[in-house]
Amino acid sequence: MAEYKGVMVYCEAAEGRLLPIATELLGCGKKLAGDLGEELCAVLLGANVSSVAQEAITFGADKAYVVNDPQLGDYQTDSYVAALEKVVKEVMPQIVLMGQTSVGRDLAPRLAFRLDPAASMDCIDLAIDPESKRLLQTRPVYGGNAQATFTYDSDPQIATVRAKAMSPLEADPSRQGEVITIDAGLDPQAIRTRVLEKVPEEVAGIKLEDANAVICGGRGIGTAEGFKELEELARILKGAVGATRPPCDNGWVPDSAQVGLTGKIVAPDLYIGIALSGSSQHMSGCSGSKNIIAINKDPEANIFKEARYGVVGDWKKVVPAFRDKVKELLTE
């Protein structure tokens, strides 16, 4: 029987480019493949993704497998699991990595259960055990209050990786690699879902996950109007506004503003947490920020355990004065 060998990265792309998470996965996959002395390959699934294969190679893949099929235009569980299952069975990688994204969250467990073991979701550290050569999969558990390292004995070992947890390699356009096309072999009858509509939430300004400054508001902001004040501050800092879950649940901000374990992952140079307690689930989404600043009226709030600088006080008094001073300093 053939052996499972090498590392495979499932690369998500949009508008003909790899998503940042895909380049991060390739960077991480390259290291793991190196430690195993094996190859790194990329897989692209979609209606028309051939053009992205070369980009995956510049970011470190030795080979790129491309599966083009009109039925892979929209992400759908049945079609994507079937197509990826086919690729994995043909290539037989020892390790399969995906992003902890809307797609990866859905695809990884389903694929893992089809191929037998379960996946490790939302990993922040992956390493090859020097003795057993098995994949050590470290992920936050209990909302980020703890971390656990998992391993399992059967192949392929499937893991999803949290955004911004790994570093991409420098793109190298001179890197060469083979591009291999695989037929999806989909049975239209086996696709039991249909995407009727996509409804994007329009967000003005800089995207939260790309911003160098993130101003997050919590339950203590109290109203949608309150968030307008944070937007003002964000504008001055050329940043974006995020939120904990309660402001999203209450409709003060769109759901897509949520930062945390089940929301967006941000790692800006400057993160300011305002009127939020710093729950482990929220901090999961921002603890990679370079400088964490806290404004909260409760000196015991957990956010002060994570912050570098803080002010204890009512945000309604602190934020306007802070904003004016920042504006002054930045226009000096």
Binding site: A146, A148, Y152, V311
Partner: peptide, 27 residues
């Protein structure tokens, strides 16, 4: 099918400098 090799609590630095002032505005 999965084994837990290790369960641990990440260490947090926890050295926040609190900026104070006579009034919240001053802080």
């Amino acid at each position: 099918r999965t084994r837990i090799v290790k369960l641990f609590q990440p260490v947090r630095e926890g050295k926040c400098e609190i900026i104070s002032g006579e009034t919240p505005e001053e802080a």
